[in-house]
């Protein structure tokens, strides 16, 4: 199994940490992983993206130009990465702020109202875990116990009290994933 993922959105949306939690969950089930961020002048409000590869085998190139899954959190990222999803691959997006929804017919498209659901949970910071939950509904590559371990490993200990909230957010995402189009 090899899963090549791009997660893209605004800085501050938790793009990099979502990638890190996915990568650590892979480590927890003895898989090979790479996490490669766009780095540089990105900051809160600018665009940010990270590619994550999770594989049973040694990973060759950590730098990719096409992906099995794109997790898209703003319009700029959709414009850039929709065409980089492999035919038959997955595009998951949050429709909040999306004016031009994805149009490809040869990929599987799903959405999750992450921003709205996070607001309903009363904590906008749960946004990235809601989206990750929706992703794990589409592609259940890890069991929840591995995700919990991934959270424990990637969050500093002082934030461990937030793990139950994060797990709850993941569940909300899993329940609210909507299918838009399948091949």
């Amino acid at each position: 199994m090899t899963e090549e993922i791009i997660i893209a959105g605004f800085g501050g949306q938790g793009v990099l940490s979502m990638g890190k939690i996915l990568a650590y969950s892979g480590v927890m089930q003895d898989q090979e992983v790479t996490w490669f961020p766009s780095y540089g002048p990105e900051m809160r409000g600018g665009t940010a993206n990270v590619s994550v590869i999770i594989s049973d085998e040694r990973i060759s190139s950590p730098i990719l130009h096409e992906f099995d899954t794109a997790i898209i959190l703003n319009q700029q990222s959709l414009d850039k990465f929709e065409e980089q999803v492999k035919p038959g691959g997955v595009l998951l997006y949050d429709p909040n702020g999306i004016v031009h929804p994805p149009t490809r017919k040869d990929i599987n498209i799903y959405k999750v109202e992450g921003a709205r659901l996070a607001a309903e949970m009363g904590n906008p910071k749960t946004f990235n875990m809601i989206v990750m939950g929706a992703y794990l509904k589409v592609k259940p590559i890890f069991g929840m116990e591995k995700v919990k371990k991934g959270l424990e490993k990637s969050l500093p200990e002082r934030h461990h009290k937030l793990i139950p909230l994060n797990l709850e957010a993941i569940e909300v995402g899993q329940k609210n994933m909507e299918t838009v189009h399948t091949v």
Binding site: V33, T34, W35, I59, P62
Partner: peptide, 10 residues
Amino acid sequence: DGAIGQMMEK
């Protein structure tokens, strides 16, 4: 290089 420096792996 910047890629190996910024990248996370196991």
